[in-house]
Design a protein around this nucleic acid. Sequence first.
DNA 1: ATGAAAGCGCTAACAA
DNA 2: TTGTTAGCGCTTTCAT
Lengths: 344, 344
Amino acid sequence: MTGRTQSRGGRPTMKDVAAHVGTSIKSVSRVLNGEPGVSADTTERILRAMADLGFRRNDLARGLRQSDRTGTVGLVLPQAATRYHDSLVRGLEEVARRHGSLVLTASSGTAAQERETLVSLCSRRVDGLVVVPAGTDHGFLQPEQAAGVPIVFVDRPPHGIDADLVLTDDAGGARRATSHLLEQGHRSIGVIGADAGIHTVAERLRGHREGLTEAGLAQRRNLLRPGCETAAQAAAACLSLFASPDPPTALFTLNNQCTIGAVRALHTLRRARSTALVGFDDFETADLLDPPVTVVAHDVGEIGRRAAALVFGRLEGTITGRSGSHVLPTSLTERGSGGIPPQR
Amino acid sequence: MTGRTQSRGGRPTMKDVAAHVGTSIKSVSRVLNGEPGVSADTTERILRAMADLGFRRNDLARGLRQSDRTGTVGLVLPQAATRYHDSLVRGLEEVARRHGSLVLTASSGTAAQERETLVSLCSRRVDGLVVVPAGTDHGFLQPEQAAGVPIVFVDRPPHGIDADLVLTDDAGGARRATSHLLEQGHRSIGVIGADAGIHTVAERLRGHREGLTEAGLAQRRNLLRPGCETAAQAAAACLSLFASPDPPTALFTLNNQCTIGAVRALHTLRRARSTALVGFDDFETADLLDPPVTVVAHDVGEIGRRAAALVFGRLEGTITGRSGSHVLPTSLTERGSGGIPPQR
DNA sequence: ATGAAAGCGCTAACAA
DNA sequence: TTGTTAGCGCTTTCAT
């Protein structure tokens, strides 16, 4: 007689614990949830049995019964952006932890993978969802929203669903970057960025155009290099810009991968010191490059905290009513590369 | 009459779908799981009802019944290391996706948070677990392991439990880095790293000592700067090394945060071009710094794939028997900073 | 202070 | 082809 009642290979259940102690399953439940009505002696023996058996409550079953909360929030990120989202994860976790919730991060990638991931998380009954959209339609999330799962989109607006939104002032930041370059006297600014179909990219391009217009200039198509998804593609785009008969005297790169690619190309061309550069998004070694890179920075951790605040606000009823958008500001961090004057 | 049977605020269940169609819940289940034995007509109507109602199967309940698999693998990372673990996540996900599993990433931080996170994931019945340990004791995971949850530790060995392990050849890489510097004629190598209590750090220090010993040198205490957890601390440590009466002619930094901090300090001291430097861990802009930074690199994606292979191998019974360790190789990526000769 | 019974949403086993 | 019953591990009544 070992006293072990648990089934083969499986894990001990409350029933096993109860049997082990010789009490009812309800007493075990009471101890587990800190409810009153169990004698000190019984409590003690139950706790001991749980430790001996290596009991761990099955939260799936628990959640099944008290069908309100699972204590988890899902975060879905497109693979591409992972690096940049470190701080976002941290910001979100910081708030979630205070609310006793666990953040489960999963990645999307393609639109299909995103949908699969989101549905999986919903099937696992996360209490809330924070999504950096990868796909183009999110209408399939309507049932969850209707069932009371708060969904917050970050970075770009969703389609097919009306939900809370945390954005960055992409256009404003881009306008600022552009003006900065124009102030140094540049009249020919090359732009390197990802696919213009992406909301952030479109907004940054729009801001850039606004900056040009303000100075009485027009956007020139041959200075535009969209569609760069990797640093390598950005580097190639940069080389092609300078291979043209009328190369730019300055560059504006629309995310940090593009910035890094451009710097790499400029080094190859030995033009790093003579070409002005402003990049959108800060990155860790921006101050160590030669010359140090001026960037449009934004507080990604704050985005995470705001998204979390929205999720838990809705969950706890502090926030009610229609969904809204929150736009967070950017700032220009001048480090040198943006201050280089035009050279012929 | 709207035809809606679902309970207030809750989500539609299979029962609701069945009622809506006027069939039994079992037929709904059959359609959902692609089992045969449902007429085309009924199938059609059930599918329509599911779409109309926005039905989503409750995987918690499903998992409760067929208590074998939940289709999820937990990944727990210490916050500090997030950046470096991008590729790890990707490697793991790549394999998991092929096995139809979703990777849920959560972060640890302190030992207490790590335990909480791990227990939470276990309570949610993940099928397997990949852990980059933060705490010092993992004996509390024994019940899960006994219940058949494969657990793989990455980067450093666990204590209090015997589990599969995927490591990097830290000592070998460090020895190689050290030899490289010695070959340039350096006899005084400053070492900047994180807390020596961390396994990887200890191993890298050991490898460094071996390299020195091989050349007939001894480790000098005053050249050692452990305990640097951030780039800023590493920078300060670097400054202190060069403020000593007998400064080193070369540096060996034990992770990329330390490398970045050291480069920053060397720039401040205008010593970047005259001090040899080899860093452990590669990082994105290493080739863009001045001079380009020589590093000990390793394939982090491969670590993720190996860990995943172990988890699914155990899960599917392809791998059986006692747990084992896997040590992955490193390589020296020479970019310039390591080739600088000693200067007086 | 303690327990028995019902039920959460689903699937497995067995009818019909 | 379809439905009925039982039960996964837990919590929630409601007794005792």
